[in-house]
Design a protein around this nucleic acid. Structure first.
Lengths: 252, 252
DNA sequence: GATCTTAGTCGTCTGCCTGACGATAAACAC
DNA sequence: GTGTTTATCGTCAGGCAGACGACTAAGATC
């Protein structure tokens, strides 16, 4: 395997983002409308080129900030500063995935609380939170009656992989707290699991599980009634990142 | 985010391989000696450039075949043809990871049975199976007294990620059978787990677990005494890919 | 203010799974 | 035959999850 620097074919490298949040009891992903050909006018995942001097994670964090205003949560910093969780997902490099040239895309997965409103370059009409179930449905119509064409490029596949990663990862890690604000109740955390898995969980067993797992939740002392009903204790994410034994996803 | 095809910086894209096997009760990885600068003479993971017209998985399968003679096991083909398991691991793109130019490497993880002897371009002295514990140890000496320098580039990190992936994935999947020949005994499978996790497992509980998990193992009817002792039933990997509940890794 | 509704929280019980470990079986070495 | 090695079956106790009853404490409604 002699090394010839002039022999390697040139590639473009991009990062694409699967940004997930939970709104109105549904798992939603950030989609942006393409303003350029190909797939002009179609919805796509946000993304962009990796610059010559930046790392892949840096590029993903930069794109995330540009699209949402969220700054990525550095895994080295245990303090929850309400930043988004960001991790590498997978890399997609089919020679035909972009008709213009050879593009390899390093997809990343970001998880964020509900709060932020989407803004793609300041233009709200070109970015939206869409239920993943709607984006992954190849046919049919969106909730606003708009025809729901499949996502551009291979982004349906990327989104599908990202959703599957999130669904499986909240089983054995405390990642579900990344969908919650800094302080949250057990019920709010349960609704995250229910939205991501699209199942109903028993509130009593869920409460026993999460409060009984050391390091998962730490009580802040406060309470809230923002969900109605009896006041609920407020918690913050604890230091534990791995849940052992895991949270069990109910059978289909 | 206007699109300017001339604006993207050029990248080289490579695939690197973490090829794992179990030999002599130890988890081993394939290492090749570099013949070129930089890191000339140092051990590295096998890999090479992605060609202009091939997919990432194709490139990884081609490199695997070139280095080991193993052909990748297509996930779409359920029949175990004794090919190696191959999956994408992660992508490494630090701007400084290769001093010559900007290289993004899509690392893949391959798992193979013990049988094949390494051959890098036909030259056996430039390829070897090394215990991962030795390759990941930054200091010290190899078993042949040779100074064990760290792997070239960021390959120590890549190998570490690959080993961790394999260690966790055999917990909840039937992937451990990829380390076994087509037909194997429960004891041989247990020794795979013990080597990968570097622990001792109770033979009785392990036997109960694997034979009691539907779809994990299917008996072939034959027996063997190649391990000595009482003849053991031979099994083949069943159709199940996910183990639920998982195999539990003992605490440290 | 009594009642209803909505959440949250604490308990109980049963069944399944795992870890620890005793016991037996069937080959080989001497 | 005796000992050694590996495989396989059984037993028992503890832990955890699913099902579900009961109680608590707020706002909403009449």
């Amino acid at each position: 395997m002699p090394y010839d620097p002039s022999a390697f074919p040139p590639f473009a490298v991009t990062v694409d983002l699967v940004v997930l949040t939970v709104r109105r009891h549904a798992l939603c992903a950030l989609a942006v409308r393409r303003g350029e050909s190909p797939f002009k006018g179609r919805w796509a995942l946000p993304g962009g080129f990796v610059r010559a001097d930046e790392d892949l994670a840096q590029a993903a964090a930069r794109e995330l900030a540009e699209e949402t205003g969220l700054h990525a949560h550095d895994p080295a910093v245990p303090a929850r500063d309400n930043g988004a969780h960001l991790e590498q997902l997978a890399t997609y490099g089919d020679p035909e995935r972009d008709p213009r040239m050879r593009v390899v895309s390093v997809a990343h997965l970001a998880l964020a609380p509900d709060l932020p409103a989407p803004r793609a370059g300041g233009d709200a009409s070109n970015a939206r939170w869409a239920p993943v179930e709607e984006l992954l449905r190849q046919e049919g119509y969106g909730r606003d009656g708009e025809a729901a064409a499949p996502l551009a490029f291979d982004h349906t596949r990327i989104l599908s992989d990202g959703v599957e990663r999130a669904r499986s990862k909240i089983e054995y890690s405390s990642l579900a707290t990344a969908f919650c604000p800094t302080e949250f109740t057990v019920g709010e955390l349960r609704r995250v699991y229910e939205a991501v898995w699209a199942v109903a969980l028993d509130p009593r067993n869920f409460h026993r599980k999460v409060t009984g797992t050391p390091g998962f939740l730490v009580p802040t002392g406060g309470t809230t009634t923002r969900q109605g009903g009896r006041p609920a204790q407020l918690f913050r994410a604890g230091g534990a990142t791995l849940l052992n034994p895991p949270m069990l996803r109910p059978e289909v």
